[in-house]
Design a protein around this nucleic acid. Structure first.
Lengths: 299, 299
DNA sequence: AGTACAGTTCAGTTCTTCTTAACGGTCGTC
DNA sequence: GACGACCGTTAAGAAGAACTGAACTGTACT
């Protein structure tokens, strides 16, 4: 019979692209991965890898195996979930990937509630950008992901991932209080000459903000770039920049910023996602429910 | 993640009942099995085995895992089948369990045809009583089983086993030619005083034969008992006994026996069965088709 | 009571898997 | 076009996991 561990290795290769990447992800040496994959070829009696430049490419047979490996992993995951579900107490581990503002706004209350209600559940949290987080959750690095989605900028859809809306928040133009007193700005076009702080290129919010400015009719002067929204706030508060900031960021926090509603602007949606096979896990279920409660309370 | 090998071990325990039996089946020492199962308990953090007298009993949690283990094995089996199917040549191995008369009547032609058409398929055959064979096929010791079923004596049904009728044959009363000349027997009741040869107690055919005699109104004088139908034939031919013998037994063979039709007697059915998860295997499919062809040709 | 059987534990062996180190091939770059 | 960076493979040995064998406990059968 085929060794599952090798099948999984092949699947990792399909996901990550290179043997070196698989090795790094699993804390193995590339040599070990290479050897195991050769053994898999021996076991199946087929060629699974073909050299393609300095990397390797999967043969069609390998693709077949990769799909099956996914099924096996799903089955095992369901097994673990069912096992946990057969117990009366909710226990286990939930690895969650969260983007920054959700981590700040939603997680404290959620973690407190989880600890109180489900003391046997261990929640692990890692801060991660939504796109990456979705991918890694799909690849089983996390059990749950809290991700954001900007209007007209759909996050990649992974089959096998169960997405559920969590909350929405408005995006508003944040202006320095000082600035506001001197030259009161009442609409987005009036911010055309101001210095902007935005997230780095590649981030959904960056794309959204740039597009919005362009649709409004100007190219923003992006003078500051950082992924840290707390830094955005500081830059605005200190009068150095303006920014488009979603409401969630202000959760449990005072600010001197002036927040300008932008009428007609669609809201950002926050959603959770998990692997379908993990849906039966009581710990994951408990976490999602608690999180949704926390999100509802905030709003 | 749960180790599949241990999961499978637990499943074997559920099937075979004792750790010793599992060990013997897999060519391990009982010690090894015991240790692996303890490790599984550590992995899951749950009690899976409970002492019951001098044996062990599975806890409900263990049963959950057993079911999942079955799913995993099915998935892997489908994977292997799909892998074979992705090749242009039909190849692989088919382990078949056959009962004696089918082995004699059907297998030679089938094996010849298989060798000619599918030289890359390796067929392995083991002679096994139907009931056992079905069970062992379900437990993955075989990939295919050819079994018989006597009227009003249904073979046990295993879920997950795909049964397909192969052929039917009449059961007739075999009488010695000599005897026939001296005291011509024309119906079953007239054989009431004769010595019988039958299969051992427990065999379906034995049950069937005894029941038939009793319904006819007499208790047969079972003087000879053997599972070997060829021995039955010899005993009849040599004038020592009479017997109820299904037609398949005569395939490709002359006999001096006189064969008496028993009007109104239902026929014996021969069927094949395989695990559902193995249905996609091209080798198994090829074997079944070839076998059905051979059976059709004979009739 | 005695024997056979089922399971576990512990110490030691065996086998698999992993690491390290060295090598060959490919790509991008200066 | 040579150099360096990167990727993958191979061989040898180390590390780890799994298995065996013997000794022991407890249970059932007779």
């Amino acid at each position: 019979m085929l060794e599952i561990r090798r099948l999984v290795l092949l699947r990792e290769l399909a996901i990550r692209g290179t043997i070196a990447a698989v090795a790094e992800a699993l804390n193995f040496s590339p040599s070990a991965v290479s050897q195991q994959l050769s053994l898999l070829e021996k076991e199946t009696g087929m060629t699974l890898l073909r050299k393609a430049g300095r990397r390797v490419q999967l043969t069609p047979q390998a693709e077949v195996l990769v799909q099956s490996a996914g099924e096996v992993l799903d089955t095992v995951e369901r097994a673990e979930a069912r096992l946990q579900a057969s117990l009366s107490v909710v226990s286990g581990r939930v690895r969650v990937a969260v983007f920054q503002s959700a981590a700040l706004a939603l997680m404290p209350a959620t973690l407190r509630a989880m600890a109180a209600r489900y003391p046997d559940v261990r929640v692990e949290m890692v801060q991660r950008e939504p796109e990456e987080a979705l991918r890694e959750t799909w690849a089983r690095d996390f059990d749950m992901v809290i991700a954001e989605q900007y209007p007209a900028h759909a996050a990649p859809h992974h089959p096998g991932l169960d997405r559920r809306p969590l909350t929405e928040d408005a995006i508003r133009l944040a202006l320095p209080a000082v600035e506001a007193a001197l030259h009161p700005v009442a609409s987005l076009p009036e911010a055309r000459t101001m210095p902007w702080v935005m997230e780095p290129r590649g981030a959904a919010s960056r794309h959204f903000a740039e597009q919005l400015c362009r649709r409004t009719g100007f190219e923003p002067d992006v003078r500051y770039e950082t992924a840290d929204l707390q830094a955005h706030i500081r830059l605005v508060e200190s009068g150095n920049a303006v920014a488009l900031i979603p409401d969630l960021v202000w959760a449990g926090r005072d600010t001197s910023c002036r927040l300008l509603d932008l009428p007609g602007l669609p809201r950002r949606t926050i959603f959770t996602a998990q692997r379908l096979a993990g849906a039966a896990s009581p710990a994951a279920r408990a976490f999602r429910d608690t999180l949704e409660e926390a999100a509802a309370t905030r709003a």
